Amino acid sequence: MAQDISFNVRGNNGEDLRVGAWRFDGAGNGPKVHVQAGVHADEIAGMLVLHLLMPRLRQAESEGRLKGSVTLVPQANPLGIGQFRQGRILGRFHDATGQNFNRSFDQSQALRRPATNVQHWQKSLVELAATADLVLDLHTDDEALPYVYVHRAFWPRGRALAAALKMDLAIIWDEGGDGSFEETLIAPWLRDGDTAQRFAATLELRGQADVSDRLAGQDADGLYAWLCSVGVIDEVRPLAQWPVQAVEMGHMETILAPRPGVLVFEKELGDFVEEGQRFARILGRPGDASSEVILHAAQAGRMVTRYRDRLIAQGSVVAKFTGSRVSRNWAGGLLDPN
């Protein structure tokens, strides 16, 4: 039976907060897997995916078909999950400190005695995943196509995972520098050259509003098929043939809002645009035609993400596109620096 390995972390007022975690242990020598969702607490889709995956793992375990071990953390961030403000959850940043929940994991790991409750929580998550061979971190974007972040060391092996989840896009990265969970976990693997039997990826499961039984069931099916393909579950589940476009991180074009105002998209997610083609406009002062700003594509590519709200602040990310050359705005690091 699945083992409940839940643990407590400190809340903002020193109270204990529970992180639910379960481990399914198999009878063979298959890989150890760690899958978590909700590090950014307002990214809900992965929580439902893992909820639907659990009964299937429980059945595989009870029937003796589980050859590896799988640890699931369906709602990884109890600090952020309670941060409701005026009816909306604000789960990307820690209220008390302003820290992005998926940054600076490397700093918390360097501390024997974490100084803050966020560091204590981060250290606990990394320690839970540290012995795994395969690690998946489930996130969502604002509004987005499903896509996968994967370090170059794990490509093209990551193509099978992307295809299993019917993800059209894989973003390949080399350097992060901000201490995300994935980056921190794989750092010793990269340092020691120990990547041949290991794998890690961050999965972006569409947008924050894309939470449904249909989509979550499709993603749970994909994860289950992938677990079969890597020897965790003794079951033949052919992976779907699916076209996956691999794009270098530096080739992604991120378009920022040049002014605040009402955001009107003229292109949909997945649409292809030519260089210089208009895809959106911002009405700075509705009623004043001179306040309208037209937004154009920086290079040819597909719209992968777009801003969820339709009133945007200056400097916010309007949209991200694939590209075929290095973006003139590329300065290294993560796709989303904050």
Rank of each mutant, 00 (worst) to 15 (best):
R198P: 11
R191I: 01
G176T: 09
I171H: 05
A201M: 12
F181L: 14
F181E: 00
A196K: 13
I172A: 05
D178H: 08
G193M: 10
F199T: 02
P188N: 13
D192P: 08
W189F: 03
T202S: 15
E175I: 07
S180H: 02
R191M: 11
I172Y: 06
T195W: 00
R198F: 05
L203Q: 05
E183M: 08
F181Y: 14
D174Q: 14
T202W: 02
I172S: 06
A200W: 00
F199E: 01
D194A: 13
A200P: 02
T202R: 03
L185A: 03
T202P: 03
T202N: 03
G176R: 00
D192G: 05
I172G: 00
T184S: 14
T202Y: 03
R198A: 07
I171P: 02
S180D: 01
S180Y: 01
I186W: 09
E182A: 10
W189H: 11
A201P: 06
R198S: 06
G193N: 10
D194F: 07
L190I: 12
F181C: 01
Q197S: 12
T184E: 10
E175Y: 09
D174E: 15
A200G: 14
E175F: 07
E183H: 09
P188Q: 12
D192I: 00
A201Y: 13
E183K: 04
G193R: 12
G177M: 10
A201V: 09
G177D: 08
E183I: 03
A187V: 07
E183A: 14
Q197T: 13
P188H: 13
A200T: 13
D194S: 09
G176Q: 10
E175S: 12
R198T: 07
W173Q: 08
W189A: 03
G176L: 09
D178Q: 11
L185S: 08
L203E: 03
F199D: 02
A187H: 10
L185T: 02
F199I: 05
R191Q: 15
F199L: 05
E183P: 06
F181M: 12
A201K: 05
T202C: 13
A196W: 04
A200M: 06
I186T: 03
D192F: 00
G193E: 12
I172M: 14
S180K: 09
T195E: 07
D194C: 06
A187L: 07
I186L: 12
S180Q: 05
I186Q: 05
R191F: 00
I171T: 14
A187C: 07
I186V: 15
D194V: 06
W173A: 07
G177N: 11
G177W: 06
D178M: 10
E183S: 14
D192R: 13
T202M: 01
A196F: 04
P188V: 06
G177K: 11
G193H: 11
A196S: 11
I172R: 15
F199P: 03
E182Y: 01
R191P: 04
R191N: 09
